[in-house]
Design a protein around this nucleic acid. Structure first.
Lengths: 149, 149
DNA sequence: CCAGTAACTTCCCTAAGGGAAGTCGTTGGG
DNA sequence: CCCAACGACTTCCCTTAGGGAAGTTACTGG
């Protein structure tokens, strides 16, 4: 099933998808984010085959999103932790959560809640402009060619 | 390659991935967002096989992200447009762009720039708390079980 | 010394993606 | 009037990625 490569497209969306653009990677990221960091914990929680899990983990480590570190030498045991690059990628998860909560959660409401440290309230993310701080969604922008086009 | 279903997991990330969790869907969404709305335009722009493209489009329409509408009866011609659900999903693309620009763009800089309507400036998205309006990133929240857990 | 555990790897099978070619309804040019 | 062209797909075949189960390695504890 030779998959088309996205990594060399001149598009940050495509390049991001090249790293987390298949179903399992974001879920692995989510698990590591909430503290499920070991191989067999991940496998149990996700119901993923160990083959695919080891491939995905290797890929995420190669792309600098996760770090593999030994937390014990004898016996050799490893865990996966987020790098800065990976931690920032988790922001994407918050936006997925927001959309999923709005459009795919049923009667029962959102399965997970998020409490903001600063204000202590249950809330969700909104996209704001880095310049003027006001709301900035996909419908609020013009798209222009940039230097790396 | 029977793919594991994510749709019925109690997780908004998984449910979102069930809809746009494979590589092509977000790119199709991006194209429709910037005005590439017809089948053969999409195919040319993406380099996707027509088989997979028609499957993906059908899926996105079924999930209420895109709308298929005839813009001509004779001859029968169709285009795909964003629904409200799909437009909000484009916010996710802005966050992908931001991460991709920061971590995968090379020397030459970002391939695409975004100008905010409100302030007219080239900028990017930041995640803010819907309650207190301050920055709210993945590292700034506690995760708690919600009603739909 | 044997069961158990963490972290994988190997094997096989099936189904999904890629590519090329074919289809269907219509229109415009020679 | 007939054939090429076009938009929008569908069908066919081939390759390969994903799922599942079983095997492997390196230890530890009883």
């Amino acid at each position: 099933m030779q998959r088309t490569r996205f990594g060399d497209m001149a598009c940050s969306i495509a390049r991001t998808l090249d790293i987390v653009g298949e179903p399992w990677s974001p879920l692995i990221l989510r698990d590591v984010y909430v503290g499920i960091t070991r191989f067999d914990e991940l496998q149990r929680d996700l119901g993923i085959s160990s083959k695919v899990l080891s491939e995905r983990l290797k890929g995420l480590v190669d792309n600098g999103v996760l770090e593999r570190r030994a937390y014990s030498q004898r016996p050799p045991r490893h865990e996966y932790t987020l790098t800065d690059k990976g931690r920032e990628l988790c922001d994407l998860l918050l936006v997925m959560v927001r959309w999923g909560d709005r459009w795919t959660a049923g009667e029962s409401g959102p399965p997970v809640l998020y409490r903001h440290h600063d204000c202590g309230q249950i809330s969700h993310v909104e996209l704001h402009c880095s310049v003027c701080d006001r709301l900035m969604r996909a419908t609020d922008v013009d798209v222009l060619p940039g230097p790396g086009a």
